[in-house]
Simulated assay, not measured.
Amino acid sequence: MDQREFRNTVGTFATGVTIITAKGEDGKNIGLTANAFSSLSLDPPLILVCIDKKSSSVPAFQKGRPFVVNILSEEQENDCWSFAKGGVDKFVNAQYELSPNGVPILKENLSTIICDVFEVLEGGDHVIVTGFVKEISRNEEKKPLIFYGGNICKLTVPAYSNK
Rank of each mutant, 00 (worst) to 15 (best):
T12N: 06
K90Y: 08
V117M: 09
D79H: 14
E97A: 11
I152D: 03
E135D: 15
A34T: 02
L121P: 01
L145T: 03
K85L: 08
F13R: 15
I30K: 12
A36Y: 08
W81A: 06
N101D: 14
D43M: 05
I20S: 04
I105M: 07
I128V: 15
T18G: 08
V69N: 01
T12M: 06
C153W: 04
A34G: 01
V127M: 03
I136L: 10
G31H: 06
D43R: 04
G149R: 09
P158F: 00
G11D: 13
F147Y: 14
F83R: 01
F132P: 00
E77L: 12
S73F: 02
F83C: 04
N8C: 06
L48M: 13
R4W: 00
E141G: 05
R4D: 03
K154I: 10
R138Y: 13
I136Q: 11
K163W: 02
G149A: 14
D125K: 13
T33S: 03
R65H: 15
G27R: 14
L110W: 02
Q62V: 12
V69W: 00
E77V: 14
K54S: 14
V127G: 06
A94K: 07
I105Y: 01
N109S: 06
S161L: 00
S41N: 13
I152F: 11
V127I: 15
E135K: 12
P59E: 02
K134A: 09
Y160M: 13
D116A: 09
K90W: 09
V120Q: 11
K23E: 11
V133A: 03
L72E: 05
W81I: 14
K85E: 12
S99T: 14
S55D: 06
C115T: 10
I19N: 09
S99G: 04
T9Q: 12
L40A: 09
P144W: 01
L121F: 13
S41D: 11
I20F: 08
L72Q: 07
N162K: 02
E141T: 05
I19Q: 07
N35F: 06
S57N: 01
G131T: 12
P158R: 00
K54P: 01
V58N: 03
E119S: 14
G31E: 07
I152C: 11
F13Y: 15
K143M: 05
W81V: 14
N109C: 15
E77T: 12
V129T: 00
G11C: 12
V129K: 05
T15I: 06
V69I: 14
F147L: 14
N109V: 08
A14R: 07
V117C: 13
I51T: 03
P158K: 00
W81M: 11
G149Y: 10
Q62S: 09
V88A: 02
F132L: 15
